[in-house]
Design a protein around this nucleic acid. Structure first.
Length: 606
RNA sequence: GCGCUCGUAGCUCAGGGGAUAGAGCACUGGUUUCCGGAACCAGGGGUCGAAGGUUCGAAUCCUUCCGAGCGCACCA
């Protein structure tokens, strides 16, 4: 199944082919002049050169063909008194306008038939373009051990999770990998800090080592910046950290035990941070997991002359002939022998390729300021021949800024924590409920759950409706209003439909889910419903969730307009009433599908 | 210096070479004997940063310039 425009594209494409022109010219899309027509095809103008005819002549040939093959209904709803050779008249109007636009209106019967298909299809017409044998890894976490999640983690988490949902829905085996920052000097800094402050701890003896951590996450989070600062000022202190790092990486048992506790506490904290947002990862690997591969990769790259010595370090040259800019090499081993995140990123690709023999793509949703880094990593992996046939893509996200245009801070001027940001959103949602004296008959738990869903809808909709790569200004007040283009508005409309359907049920009004009798006032909603696959495909192809945000908003708004202008439960004609209820149900299901992909949950009431 | 991204309504942003450049907020006016008014309807508001170029057609593609942000091996 496809969208209505895609179906028409086939018909018009055939018409172009019948003129001896490429079928690709027959692309039909929803008209950008709804006052003139429902759908348009601009191919005749592009065809004019190839055909060596005037655009209007080409258009006329196409129109004549469509007329003959599919006829043209004389009324929107009376299809078949003039059937073409295909026995059906899809079109109500076939017109040529301006320089050669082919303007099309579709008969209501064709629309209704399409709607029936959509209503009976659980995918609502969205094509399954991938399959479970095609794995896509999305790398969008990058959270660090022992470091509180901050505002900068919101965007990649939300966008990455959404892209994963999009690809999963498209049928791919899409996996989210957190790719923890759990290796390197910062680990040695913390280990050495603990060893200095708690030399008596069993981690630093000969074993046995503690099963449970001897410290909590708050202490861990606190000690990291202190240790980091201390190392910066004091070369001797830094040497301790280096030594600890080396010992850890060589597998010193006590340090490994301590490190494992860092991991346990940090992972628990990350899960706790993400829980309100419903964001989960499928793969909880990190830099540490690929450390084991580095010697063999180094050996491989050196033996093939891909890695080379340079100023005491080992680097991979990734310059290309056609570069128009300086391309620094990837630092594989620093001159002190340590690895960098470039090394571990290459090793992670190596690991993933080995692990998934059906790997199609690896997509990184990471701060756009890392673009040069990823270019180096990608080129290195390509030069090494590790990723033949595998697409590597960096989707660089912009930053979340305050109204001063600088990265978002708290009122006290500190960097906002992730938890603080989510908490502030939930508080604001609760306040909004209070102000409006809403949801007052709910239990405290239910109300808190509604507030959470509103806050999450607000945050995620804002994140996703901006293009990933732009910086945007964080304005809690604006995103948590029920007015305008916001997550809460979408929830409100979805809840309103549910309420209506519930009422129909209570009143014992039944209806067939897939039978439609179209009325004048239903048409714009119906045509919009038929667009879903177009927008989904676009979001999938271009990695652009904001396309789905835009569609969800238009759908909600169009429904609200329909709701305001048409009688539904109060409609006296039973067939029309049933059709409108079926429309409500279908609208709700599409809204739920789209919001679900965006990672937004709909409450039953609010 | 080199490179990347961006510049569209007062503000925040959409606009896969096509007709009259759209939406939200804000502003102005209107709508409730019916289903959630947290809504709906209507209106004002633009030299698409500037100038050239390609094209039947450019906000969109190319070049130059202006302005903003960011990045340019041994932090991640």
């Amino acid at each position: 199944m496809t969208s209505l425009a895609q179906k028409l594209t086939e018909l018009v494409g055939a018409a172009f082919e019948a003129q001896g022109l490429p079928a690709e010219l027959g692309v039909v899309r929803v008209s950008d002049r709804p006052d003139l027509c429902q759908f348009q095809c601009n191919g005749a103008m592009a065809a004019a050169k190839v055909a060596k005819k005037r655009p209007r002549e080409v258009a006329q040939g196409v129109a004549d063909y469509l007329e003959t093959e599919y006829a043209q209904a004389t009324e929107r709803t009376s299809p078949s008194q003039k059937a073409g050779s295909h026995g059906s008249s899809h079109f109500f109007k076939i017109e040529i306008a301006g320089p050669g636009f082919i303007n099309l209106d579709v008969s209501d019967d064709t629309i209704a038939a399409h709607l029936t298909e959509t209503a009976s299809d659980e995918r609502r017409g969205v094509a399954e373009t991938g399959n479970q044998d095609q794995t896509i890894i999305l790398d969008y976490g990058g959270m660090n051990v022992a470091k509180a999640m901050h505002v900068g983690h919101l965007r990649p988490s939300v966008i990455g999770d959404c892209l994963k949902n999009i690809m999963s829905f498209a049928g791919y085996n899409a996996l989210g990998d957190i790719h923890m920052g759990d290796w390197g000097l910062q680990m040695g800094q913390i280990i050495s800090a603990f060893e200095l402050s708690h030399p008596e701890w069993a981690y630093f003896g000969d074993g046995p080592y503690p099963d449970a951590p001897l410290f909590n996450y708050a202490e861990l989070e606190e000690i990291y910046p202190q240790a980091s600062a201390a190392c910066k000022d004091d070369p001797d202190r830094l040497e301790l950290a280096r030594a600890a790092t080396k010992a850890l990486q060589e597998g010193k048992p006590g340090y490994k035990a301590l490190w494992q506790h860092f991991m346990d506490l940090s992972i628990a904290d990350i899960k706790d941070n993400l829980a309100p947002l419903g964001i989960e990862f499928d793969i909880w690997k990190g830099e540490a997991d690929v450390d084991q591969f580095i010697p063999e990769i180094a050996e491989d790259l050196k033996s093939r002359g891909i890695a080379e010595d340079s100023e005491g370090a080992v680097v991979v040259n990734v310059e290309r002939e056609d570069d128009n800019k300086d391309m620094p090499p990837l630092m594989f081993f620093k001159s002190d022998g340590a690895v960098t995140y470039g090394t571990t990123d290459v090793a992670t690709i190596y690991d993933r390729v080995k692990l998934y023999d059906n790997l199609l793509k690896i997509i990184y949703v990471v701060d756009k300021r890392q673009s040069l880094h990823f270019e180096q990593v990608f080129r290195s992996a390509q030069r090494a021949g590790y990723v033949d046939g595998i697409e590597l893509k960096h989707i660089g996200n912009g930053t979340v800024n305050g109204d001063d245009g600088k990265p978002f801070k708290t009122r006290e001027g500190k960097a906002m924590t992730f938890r603080g940001m989510v908490g502030a959103a939930i508080d604001k949602a609760t306040t909004r409920l209070d102000e409006a004296e809403l949801a007052q008959d709910m239990s405290d738990e239910e109300r808190a759950e509604v507030a959470r869903k509103i806050a999450v809808a607000a945050l995620k909709y804002t994140e996703l409706s901006n293009q990933a790569h732009v910086d945007y200004i964080f304005d809690l007040d604006r995103m948590i209003t029920f007015e305008g283009k916001t997550g809460p508005y979408l929830l409100y409309q979805a809840v309103r439909i549910q309420s209506l359907l519930k009422k129909a049920e209570v009143q014992g009004i039944g209806f067939a889910e897939d039978e439609f009798v179209l009325q004048e006032g239903d048409r714009s909603l119906v045509l919009l419903l038929a667009e879903l696959p177009d927008h989904f495909d676009m979001a999938l192809k271009n990695y652009t969730p904001h396309v789905l945000c835009e569609y969800a908003y238009r759908l909600a708004q169009e429904f609200s307009s329909f709701y305001g202008n048409c009688h539904i439960l109060s409609e006296e004609d039973e067939a029309v009433r049933a059709s409108r209820l079926a429309l409500c149900l279908l609208t709700y299901r599409q809204l739920k599908l789209v919001l679900g992909v965006l990672g937004i949950e709909i409450p039953e009431r609010m």
